[in-house]
């Protein structure tokens, strides 16, 4: 019983191949201007990693902002449901999921059965999204992944007063010109990000266990800042958090095939 999930996001496209509860393969690529092409390409990579072909897939679910443009899926499900499903599949005690994607962030609260009780999204503004970190990393001349690592070396994180991505950029430039260290700036950026998301997370009512999904969850600096903001630990997931939407889609696909 082989199921697949494909998540076409605004920045990255992901695919997961699942055999019952076993992850057979997965892949991640940058999203192109053509969602259909990105989906086909990432699925090909995931299938190659699993040593399978498309004919082996019993059911495939699509998710993400490009979900309606994926040609090979049999059903589309929102990424809100898919992230919740993926996280609950990995850790059934999960009750609150904070997903930070490239262009939005979502706080989702689940009941004990994994059903969505409440969700909130921020999709009006780039601050509090992966795009915010991408802009800031570029400004500091760092790779996105380095933002978390380098922020661990801070002695005195800066306090970013502006929450707007554009104005925060101006503020970071000013601090750079003042000779502020990149570590202090990176830590300040992560804390500003966490402060924004914590407001959203609190609005759904935080309940343990809590985890973060989406690309930003790979940034250890943001995770630590979130733990500090919310005063509770974040459960680490055993699968790449950026793959959670695609994993959830694959779990839905497995359920469609009669799997539990």
């Amino acid at each position: 019983m082989i199921a697949a999930g494909c998540d076409v996001g605004s920045l990255t496209t992901k695919a997961v191949i699942l055999n019952n509860t076993r992850l057979l393969g997965h892949a991640l690529i940058g999203s192109s201007f053509n969602p259909e092409k990105s989906a086909a390409e990432v699925m090909e990579k995931a299938l190659a990693a699993a040593h399978l072909t498309m004919d082996d897939i019993g059911f495939c679910v699509g998710t993400g902002y490009g979900r309606e443009r994926i040609g090979f899926v049999k059903k589309t499900i929102s990424e809100i449901s898919c992230h919740a499903k993926g996280a609950h599949f990995l850790q059934p005690s999960m009750r609150t999921i904070i997903d930070i994607g490239g262009q939005d962030c979502k706080a989702i609260r689940l009941d004990e059965k994994g059903e969505i009780v409440k969700f909130m999204t921020n999709d009006k503004c780039a601050s509090g999204t992966g795009r915010f970190l991408e802009v800031m990393a570029k400004l500091l001349g760092l790779e996105l992944e380095e933002l978390g690592r380098i922020s661990g070396q801070t002695t005195q994180p800066i306090n970013l007063a502006a929450t707007c991505t554009v104005w925060a950029q101006a503020e970071v430039i000013m601090h750079l010109n003042d000779g502020m260290s990149k570590a202090d700036l990176a830590a300040g950026i992560n804390e500003a990000m966490a402060a924004r998301i914590a407001i959203l997370a609190r609005s759904v009512g935080i309940e343990k266990d809590v985890c973060m999904t989406g690309g930003v969850a790979k940034n250890t600096g943001v995770i630590q800042a979130m733990e500090k903001q919310l005063g509770i630990p974040m459960r680490r997931l055993r699968v790449d958090p950026q793959m959670m939407g695609a994993l959830g889609a694959a779990v839905f696909a497995r359920e469609r095939m009669g799997g539990r």
Partner: peptide, 16 residues
């Protein structure tokens, strides 16, 4: 405005 985001929220709402 923001048709993509609106679609996602409504779809998730119906799913929930």
């Amino acid at each position: 405005t923001g048709e993509g985001q609106l679609r996602t929220r409504v779809q998730a709402f119906i799913e929930s």
